[in-house]
């Protein structure tokens, strides 16, 4: 896939809560094919103390409007400044980067996301649904306050929630949801904090489910030049930016 560097226009900012926001960025020309799990590397021009681009998961794609949606958590200076851009601002984007989640056909898939790791799961659920798969998405958050944006998943399948305080959905972590005990799945797809992904990997291993995880290692370039974002696999160090971010868990040393 050809990688591009393009200027996008910020067309919409949606505050989800004090930690998370969604940006809609629009290209001047038709978007290339974008696969679920791929990411963009965004330049933060409105903060001089931010030197490198920020890699962000693609949350959703609207080919009709040439819009890419980014789901962002304010973690540091870069993600804070991106959330302060004005509508109409220019955003330099290098994309589409990385590989993608597998898209099986006519299978039963469970998508498990925690915290900001839900970012790639919306577009994934859409692509899985379109390929004829039965999609269940479980989002794990701290409390009902963080259970935002759920409506968007509903056209593509079932959406379930776990909260740590029990204020919405089932109480506990997403990997403790009863649906995982009561039903069988062919595939599990996950993104989020490493302990959660490792719990998804353990569940998948025990239940003979094919498991793919998306890693979020820090990186400088995003296209395989700097070799900074490696993860240790059974075949040695691999770049998360080009050979990932999605890995079959069997290839990792987890």
């Amino acid at each position: 896939m050809k990688k591009l560097i393009q200027d996008f226009e910020l067309v919409k900012y949606e505050e989800l809560n004090c930690e998370h926001y969604v940006l809609d960025i629009k290209a001047n020309e038709p978007l290339p094919e974008i696969l679920p799990g791929q990411f963009v590397n965004v330049r933060v021009d409105n903060n001089n103390s931010v030197f490198l681009r920020r890699p962000l998961s693609i949350h959703n794609v609207d080919y009709d409007r040439n819009v890419i949606q980014l789901f962002v958590k304010r973690i540091g200076e870069g993600t804070k400044s991106l959330g302060e851009l004005s509508i109409g601002a220019t955003v330099s984007v290098v994309y589409p980067l990385g590989n993608s989640y597998s898209i099986p056909k006519n299978s039963k898939a469970v998508l498990i996301g925690g915290g900001c790791g839900v970012a790639p799961l919306l577009y994934l659920s859409k692509c899985l649904h379109e390929a004829g798969n039965e999609v269940t998405t479980i989002l794990g958050v701290r409390s009902s306050y963080d259970a935002v944006g759920l409506e968007a998943y509903k056209p593509y399948g079932r959406i379930l929630v776990t909260t740590e305080d029990g204020s919405e959905g089932e109480k506990g972590y997403p990997t403790q949801h009863s649906v995982l005990e009561n039903e069988n799945f062919d595939y599990s797809f996950t993104c989020g904090p490493e302990p959660m992904m490792k719990a998804v990997a353990a569940y998948s291993d025990a239940n003979d489910v094919t498991c793919e995880v998306s890693l979020e290692n820090t990186m400088a370039c995003g296209f395989g030049a700097c070799l900074c974002c490696v993860t240790d696999t059974k075949e040695g160090n691999k770049c998360v930016c080009t050979e990932g971010p999605v890995f079959n868990v069997k290839d990792l040393k987890w």
Binding site: V50, F51, N217, T218, A220, C226, L227, C228, C229, N237
Partner: peptide, 23 residues
């Protein structure tokens, strides 16, 4: 050479540190 273990990079004021280790 496999290079050094992750993490290999840190952003710093107007620059970055790397420790790729000639992978």
């Amino acid at each position: 050479r496999e290079g050094n273990p992750y993490p290999r990079m840190a952003e710093t004021p107007s620059g970055m540190l790397n420790a790729v280790g000639l992978q």
